[in-house]
Design a protein around this nucleic acid. Structure first.
Lengths: 348, 348
DNA sequence: TTGTAAGCGTTATCAG
DNA sequence: CTGATAACGCTTACAA
């Protein structure tokens, strides 16, 4: 069952109907200055009459620009990332850009392939949440891409991309300072690889709080290797087999907090009662957990919006720059108050 | 700071390097049968040499097909939908299709606009999770789109689209039957508009279970108007102001369960203890809620995969068809057993 | 101000 | 089997 071949209306048809040259139609539609008022109305009439919409493909080929942004992401099932994607698309469409969503499944090989795909599709820019910060191969892909790039939460020295970074240190420091002030000194920290910006930055906040409090960190409580739920769960279990388990745990980013919470459930430890938890990044329905847990929060909608802004800037030829998003410590006690008020409008 | 203009390699360059005609290069690359072995290796050598990749844009314009699918969705921030999007993209890329993600913010006007955008971008097909099932305007958009369409969880009579539907009735019936067997008769049902397939189908399961148990439904406990969290919250609050509040609540789909749970929290009712809750569709970390709650589950990854399959079928010229996805009742008691076993691999 | 015509980078038809 | 060449639908010098 072939789909009906609805004959497309071409610019030629409009020109014929309006009785003018093709180029005149083009000029009217692209808002060229040198067009008479009569020409304008004649063409516009024909356009409306026929319901003409320019073929984006032909325009792109001719203009050399596609009005399309590639959005490359590791894990869109993650609400945090998908919110970024959503707000980014919303922002891009205001400027009549479309977004090609392309998943990297969190592997470098796929990322490499994705760059090739997006290149052959001639996207005007790429916004990417990459796996690695250290791979030279990725750096090369970025450098040779030929179109502007915006990085999410990654710092690649020597690469001329714009970036949206989060000031993780800020929120983490506050969180840890709070924990220390409550008498916690054995604070565990479970998160991703320590050679990444995110982790280094978080660790900075962690250390800084300890330093200010004039306390010393327990290195055996620091577990920085992987962002997965699996890793966080395993490490949490291990931590509780130590002679002296932690009295508080900083757990994250995004996949990890679930891992820690599942581990606690498994061994019957109750958050807040048996051990204080601070999750890095929030999840939907977090406020329904009982007992609720504290978190270090950053606004994904903001990140998406800024990413869109940055890529559009670069496309306009402006210089690359980095935007730093603040993070805030959502303390349980205060959160309780917030919860009952105005979560109503959020879709989760 | 202009981005470096990396001169693209064109088919012309390859032809020159190989010392053959442009058309020969094209033939080799598109696997045309009438090419000599010598020609093939000569061209391939030049291709590798120059790192040539065909311009997708030019190909599309010439071939009249873009290898691109439009994915139109109401709310990608919702983990349920974003998982569908993810698995759909993963499936599409296996067949070398890309996906344009386009948000409809849940309004018909935006949907209309989106159809126009996707049309001018000449996508080879559209997968859409639409707001309305009743609007003639949308039907028209679908009919006139000119490319195949796949609908998610919507039944538009008279429209020649394929569809992925969920067998909501199945899971709901089991859930309600279970509740009735436990002695609940005052079961509330909060969900979206009752003229939609989803709701009608769920209601069918609801009624069927009541009928089988030879019990009668309390119409004042049925609240079917809106999928939002806000609506579910408000209706939940109202239900508990009734002279005889419900002893169990079916709440969903996706946004709604949060609304009900928030409402309960607000008035200090504890799920499972004061009122039994069955959520329609699951959320990440649902199993961490305390007490945990039952749900009617459907697999979003499956839905995404099938959607991709269906659109590719249509593109190949096969006849439209509808796939029905089962839903299952996840009972708390059984869920408890499941929880501790193997949730480890999920990314939430 | 408007029209003519040359591309944009491919594919496909048609000779040779 | 291979090579010219005309499209695909539009934009943009360049002429008029």
């Amino acid at each position: 069952m072939k789909s009906k071949k609805v004959a497309r209306v071409r610019i030629e048809d409009v020109a014929a109907q309006a009785g003018v040259a093709i180029s005149s139609v083009s000029r009217v539609l692209s808002g060229h200055k040198s067009v008479s008022e009569t020409m304008k109305i004649r063409v516009e009439k024909a356009v409306n009459n026929l319901g003409y919409r320019p073929d984006h493909l032909a325009q792109s080929l001719r203009r050399g620009t596609t009005h399309t942004i590639g959005f490359m992401i590791r894990d869109i099932m993650n609400p945090f990332f998908s919110t970024i994607a959503q707000s980014c698309e919303a922002e891009l469409r205001k400027s009549h850009y479309s977004m090609i969503l392309i998943n990297s499944s969190g592997t470098e090989d796929t990322e490499k392939l994705n760059f090739a795909i997006l290149k052959s599709r001639r996207v005007d820019g790429v916004i990417a949440s990459l796996v690695s910060e250290t791979s030279d191969s990725v750096k090369e892909d970025l450098e040779l891409f030929g179109a502007p790039t915006v990085l999410l939460d990654r710092k690649l020295p020597g690469v001329t991309s714009s970036a949206v970074l989060s000031d993780h240190a800020l929120g983490v420091k506050k969180a840890v300072a709070h924990l220390l002030s409550q008498g916690h000194t054995r604070i565990a920290f479970i998160s991703g690889p320590k050679d990444m910006y995110v982790t280094k930055n978080r660790l900075e906040g962690f250390r800084s709080a300890y330093k200010d409090a004039d306390e010393k960190i327990y290195p055996e409580l620091i577990r920085l290797k992987d962002f997965t739920e699996k890793y966080a769960k395993e490490e949490t279990l291990k931590l509780f087999k130590l002679p002296k388990p932690p009295t508080a745990i900083l757990t994250g980013g995004i996949g990890a907090s679930g891992g820690t919470l599942h581990a606690l459930k498994e061994i019957g430890k109750v958050p807040e009662k048996d051990v204080t938890i601070v999750a890095l990044d929030e999840w939907p329905l977090f406020d329904l957990l009982n007992p609720p847990i504290s978190s270090v929060y950053r606004n994904p909608e903001l990140i998406g919006r800024y990413a869109a802004e940055l890529i559009l800037e670069l496309i306009r030829g402006e210089a690359p720059r980095t935007i730093l998003i603040p993070t805030t410590f959502h303390n349980v006690a205060e959160t309780k108050a917030r919860t009952n008020s105005n979560k109503g409008k959020k879709s989760y």
